[in-house]
Write a protein that binds this DNA or RNA. Structure first.
Lengths: 242, 242
DNA sequence: TACGCTAATGTCAGCCACTGACAATTGACA
DNA sequence: TGTCAATTGTCAGTGGCTGACATTAGCGTA
């Protein structure tokens, strides 16, 4: 048991250091990646529900049973890369200077994660495929549902991280959970807007995220009906209709 | 087509006014409710995954096919009552005086909804069964996922409502979505805490909700490390472990 | 009251995601 | 090279869910 297993079912990609480096492990990695790419390509091209497991396994020349030994479910393949990205964000938050406040730290973690995340993705699938996958997830009810559930688990981890930074106890003080809930709520909303909008670029997503986060505090603090205060309609808008 | 159909698949309960009042419609209502109760009772007693559709339909003496004509999926039965409750909340928000600010209005809508919601539930299933159902949803991954997705749809509706109240355009101004995202984020968190906690009462849930919401603004505004400000560890805490 | 219409239900065959059990294959390592 | 263990394939089966078609049962009417 020298492998690093992160998820409940199915192993993660080997974590850089300490690869079993045998021929056997190499083949496994190949199969895993091949299944992932074959799946994402078909999902994004013809739709998630329209793609059967058999279609994927035939393309990679393995049995259906083998697929389920690598990925616990059809949903898991679809969400595999997204999960990698989210883990990067958590790591980015973990190394933020303790001097930063919680919201500040989370905001900066997102900003810094964006730069490294690109390479991480590319090591598995083309970034462009990842983008299409993300938008597919947002528009596929079954996938969106599972994605949201995982986000909640992420939220739990973030709350503990924030609590540690501030020297608080999550089981006693609600504030870490509250601020994390607010933060992730806004982040999810941003992702959804981006998914519906026209500008599919990564920069657009980054800009929207940062802008919306910067709106959070004023939105809760100021009186909306007396203009002139900071905030107001601004850059992070989309025109989904018309 | 005189029926009020709310959800995409499967009709809702008849909406008080204008019931077709025939023997036929009455039987339908009976079957629908019988399926619901049979399902929830088994789900909460022996677990969601451990209950098959056949088990439910046998208890009600209808065919499996009939079940799927009433409820589009196994998940839909499980979430049917919760959906009713959420609709009540939206209605409560809709009738809030326009003078109230968005956060204030949402907070008060929850508070006022709690009082009427009890009767609404009882007209379909015992409140106690509803409570058990809610906790089951929180602890069943497949159900939690779908529940969260529906919450997102709810969020969209709330954002438009808030925007209308404030005379803003959701497609132009991010603030309605931002504040709704923060609010619902905190509400979901509350529900999760309640589900894990010991106090299973309805009052406990209400108290926790209100307290957490009241923490939102201070959590974003104040400096946590200089105590003495409003907020701080308070009533809405749970001791999930130890 | 009998009759036709249509809504509701039952029956059946079948798809697809997913699983357990067991046999066959194939790296790894002495 | 031969043994051991990991990996894969095969196969049978379960459960959610759907389409097609036959059957039953309210409902309005002659």
């Amino acid at each position: 048991m020298t492998l690093g297993q992160d998820t409940a079912a199915g192993q993660e990609r080997i974590s850089a250091a300490e690869q079993p480096t045998g021929l056997r492990a190499l083949k496994k990695q190949r199969t895993r990646d091949a299944l992932l790419r074959a799946a994402l390509e078909r999902f994004t091209a013809q739709g998630y529900e329209q793609t059967t497991i058999d279609e994927i396994t035939n393309a990679v020349d393995v049995s259906q049973r083998t697929f389920f030994r690598y990925y616990a479910s059809k949903e898991e393949v679809a969400l595999a890369v997204v999960e990698m990205v989210e883990n990067k964000f958590v790591e980015a938050l973990r190394v933020r200077p303790p001097a930063e406040g919680p919201m500040e730290a989370m905001r900066n973690a997102v900003a810094s994660a964006w730069t490294t995340v690109g390479e991480t993705i590319e090591s598995v699938v083309p970034v462009e495929l990842y983008m299409r996958t993300y938008r597919m997830i947002e528009s596929t009810p079954a996938l969106l549902a599972v994605h949201l559930r995982r986000s909640v688990e992420l939220e739990e981890g973030l709350s503990r991280l924030v609590a540690d930074r501030e020297g608080l106890d999550v089981d006693t003080d609600p504030r870490p959970r509250v601020i994390v809930a607010a933060f992730t709520g806004v982040m999810r909303m941003t992702g959804r807007l981006w998914g519906k909008g026209q500008d599919t670029g990564l920069d657009a997503l980054r800009a929207m995220s940062e802008c919306c986060i910067d709106h959070l505090r004023p939105a809760l603090t100021e009186n909306w009906r007396t203009p002139g205060t900071a905030g107001g309609p601004s850059a992070c808008t989309t025109h989904t209709s018309a």
